[in-house]
Amino acid sequence: MVQGLKSLNRKLTKTIPDRVRVKTRAALEKGAEEIVAMMKSFVPVDSGALRDSIGWTWGAAPEGSITLGTVRQSKDGDEAITIYAGTRNKNLGDKDAFYVRFVEFGTQNMPPSPFFYPAYRNLKRRVKGRVTREMKKAIKEGAK
């Protein structure tokens, strides 16, 4: 029989996951801020509407925007962070940035000016490493 097994199970199912969730959330937010800042520095600026439409959120992106994808913090999907650009909102008038896909991928008459995916690819490893480090640190803190 293993001594302290009940205590270990309690720590693994309650204490560590809460601590890991908090640390992971903070690391994801910091990574999203970095990616958004780089995207804004890469995007060509005309009226500024497209640059201003770039952002991140917990949950779903605004209607009409393109997303990098969604990172779920758990298998249940109770928390998801989404990085997005562009909008499809006629109420915004000249601030509607429905054309984000045209800028990113180009058209027959316009060459692409990629900003969205290059920023993501540039920072992906750094953000993933930060999240992993923070998770490991939280687990070690909980084991003490």
Rank of each mutant, 00 (worst) to 15 (best):
D52H: 08
D52T: 05
S53H: 03
I54K: 05
W56D: 04
W58C: 05
W58S: 03
W58F: 15
G59C: 02
G59Y: 02
A60T: 11
A61Y: 01
G64S: 07
G64A: 04
T67Y: 06
T67M: 08
T67R: 10
G69E: 11
T70H: 02
K75Y: 11
K75H: 05
D76F: 11
D78S: 13
D78H: 12
D78C: 06
I81G: 11
I83G: 03
Y84Q: 09
G86I: 02
T87N: 12
T87Q: 08
R88E: 07
R88M: 00
K90G: 09
K90C: 00
N91P: 00
L92F: 08
D94L: 12
D94P: 13
K95R: 15
A97V: 02
V100A: 05
V100R: 00
R101P: 00
G106F: 04
Q108M: 14
N109G: 06
M110Q: 14
P112L: 08
S113D: 03
S113F: 07
F115H: 14
F115E: 11
F116G: 00
P118M: 05
P118N: 08
P118K: 02
R121T: 05
K124H: 14
K124V: 09
K124P: 12
K124F: 04
K124Y: 09
K124N: 15
R125P: 06
R125G: 09
K128F: 11
K128I: 13
T132H: 13
E134R: 14
E134T: 10
M135I: 14
A138H: 09
K140W: 02
